[in-house]
Nucleic acid binder design. Sequence first.
DNA 1: TTCTAATTTGCAACCCTTGTTATTTGCCAT
DNA 2: ATGGCAAATAACAAGGGTTGCAAATTAGAA
Lengths: 138, 138
Amino acid sequence: MRSPGELTTLFRDRGLKVTPQRQAVFEALYGDESHPTADVVHDRVREHMPTVSLRTVYQALNDLVELGEVQAVSVGTGAARFDPNVSGHHHFVCRDCERIDDVVASPPRLKGYTVDAAEIVFRGLCASCTAKQPTTSI
Amino acid sequence: MRSPGELTTLFRDRGLKVTPQRQAVFEALYGDESHPTADVVHDRVREHMPTVSLRTVYQALNDLVELGEVQAVSVGTGAARFDPNVSGHHHFVCRDCERIDDVVASPPRLKGYTVDAAEIVFRGLCASCTAKQPTTSI
DNA sequence: TTCTAATTTGCAACCCTTGTTATTTGCCAT
DNA sequence: ATGGCAAATAACAAGGGTTGCAAATTAGAA
């Protein structure tokens, strides 16, 4: 995810307005590695802007996801987690505390962890949907 | 997942009762490769037992998951999907129709598919939780 | 500054899943 | 075969997470 300053330009270029609420979400998420839920982001934002609604935080987060600046991580732990790191990496989900850690190493290097399973989820279009796609190539 | 007949024995051994509703869930899921949601299983069961409640279907599915006979797949497409195939395999999630296919091949062999991303989710205990685990070894 | 489209808020509604409770039922022991 | 008890069912409500909606506000271009 780009810096809050760069996001300001990006949002305006896309016809999206840069509100104080959105800037607060930018700041709350920038450089964060804890994979917070929308609710956690909301709490964080309200520390300095007590009147911001959860709905607005969801809006801002969804906008960031649509722009490809933030990744929504759904790993079956209830609420979606939001990750400003959109470079290729994977996640470790603790079955006890539900903490999510970034995994840049391969499984054998997960020292200290208890790895129960490694789930690989491929995302894209299935053969049928690929076939009926209007402009798809390859 | 074992056959409905074998599950009958397994359930009784564990002190769980084998009801017609549960047997209907067994039948509905046995050999199924479509990764149905609880709601889909419910519809399927009700074709022959119209009075079965969704709650009961959830109960049966959760029991099967706890016994390790069925895998609950949460890939961010809303409702959980249930998979009677508990052998080591991965999933392909279509971003268009949300169909889930089993993946036994490696990514390069996904011919016909449009692969946007391959997410690897490691599950287990993080370093902190591993450390405070009562009886953990290795 | 003015105008317009986008945004915010607060609320309700939605989906998915689980809690609760009275009633029914499987099934073990007799 | 029957009784009794623990477990399961059904119906309902409620919970968490997320989105839809409408009125009021506001960003930002002209």
